[in-house]
């Protein structure tokens, strides 16, 4: 249910960057979303569509990149793809693991439309 707040945070940051670059508009916005971040992609899309009218995002396309989980084993150093947190190490069967990726929630890319005479 907090996807709207997160989307607003992404759009605020993107808008600030767009202004700093003297952009006319935003053409695209990419978020990197870990499968284990607990965030629903449809809810992000829904929030974006609801908030974009009348903003620099009016014509922008939202891209959502999913990141699959990877764990590392603190006992033997093995790094492996996993379906869930706490999935045991395939080598030493240990359960002392840490999440390498799959929990992220990031603004990853911003495509701006800028007039040539304004680029610096």
């Amino acid at each position: 249910m907090h996807e709207a707040g997160l989307m607003a945070e992404a759009m605020n940051k993107a808008e600030t960057l767009a202004m700093q670059c003297n952009a006319d508009a935003v053409a695209g916005l990419t978020l990197r979303v870990g499968v284990l971040s607990g965030v629903a992609l449809q809810a992000l899309q829904f929030a974006f569509d609801a908030m974009k009218p009348g903003t620099v995002f009016e014509q922008a396309e939202l891209r959502l990149e999913q990141v699959l989980p990877r764990l590392s084993c603190r006992d033997c150093g093995m790094e492996y793809a996993a379906q869930e947190r706490g999935q045991r190490c395939p080598v030493c069967k240990g359960s002392n693991t840490s999440l390498l990726q799959g929990g992220e929630l990031e603004l990853a890319k911003l495509e701006l439309i800028v007039r040539e005479d304004r680029t610096s």
Partner: peptide
């Protein structure tokens, strides 16, 4: 003075939870 429209891409890794 209407310049050509250019696309500019910024690669970022801005965590949405950074503020929190």
């Amino acid at each position: 003075m209407t310049g050509t429209l250019l696309h500019q891409t910024l690669d970022l890794s801005h965590s949405l939870l950074q503020h929190n």
